[in-house]
């Protein structure tokens, strides 16, 4: 079946079966490999993308549900990689292996949009669906706090 998709503000049409998860559409059909496969069952958050602005686990989001809606992946978070989270992430030297980081940043982006000044508890709540086997949690926490500050200062968009 042919589906119309809007990913990172670009229109695509893809031929896929209705049961195909958005993750594999993005990665294998559209070549957007920034979104990662970690578990395939909504356990790890590596595949987190935005669907109409909400963080979803693309490994369990069927293409039929995403069709016609706005999808944003890590590649489309910012045109110049200068989202406050990306700036803060670098400042705190957050990534290690890096494999979970796209999903972490996409989850944090929704938190930061909804909550300009998240507490540690808010961060726990928003981020505990995302596993980092390298244990970058302390730096992710710091980076989110820093990004909140940067966002407030408006120094970066």
């Amino acid at each position: 079946m042919v589906y119309k998709l809007k990913v990172n503000k670009k229109d695509y049409s893809v031929d896929a079966t209705p049961d195909m998860p958005l993750l594999w559409v993005l990665r294998d059909l559209l070549g957007l490999t920034g979104t990662k496969f970690g578990c395939g069952m909504a356990q790890c958050g590596a595949c987190t993308v935005h669907l109409e602005g909400e963080a979803v686990r693309s490994c369990v989001t069927l293409i039929a549900r995403a069709a016609g809606k706005e999808v944003t992946t890590i590649e489309g978070l910012s045109p110049d990689s200068k989202h406050p989270l990306q700036v803060a992430w670098l400042e705190e030297d957050t990534p290690q292996c890096g494999y979970c980081q796209s999903g972490q940043i996409m989850a944090a982006a929704v938190l930061l949009r909804e909550n300009a000044d998240p507490t540690d508890e808010d961060i726990d709540h928003a981020m505990s669906g995302n596993i980092c086997r390298c244990g970058t949690y302390p730096r992710i926490r710091k980076a989110i706090h820093l990004a909140a500050k940067l966002q407030k200062q408006g120094g970066t968009k």
Binding site: T33, K36, E75, S81, Q86, L90, G98, I105
Partner: peptide, 18 residues
Amino acid sequence: KRLDAPAKVNGTAKFGMD
């Protein structure tokens, strides 16, 4: 600062899976 970090915050870092 880590030289691999920029590619790991914007999805361009390539892993075997990619």
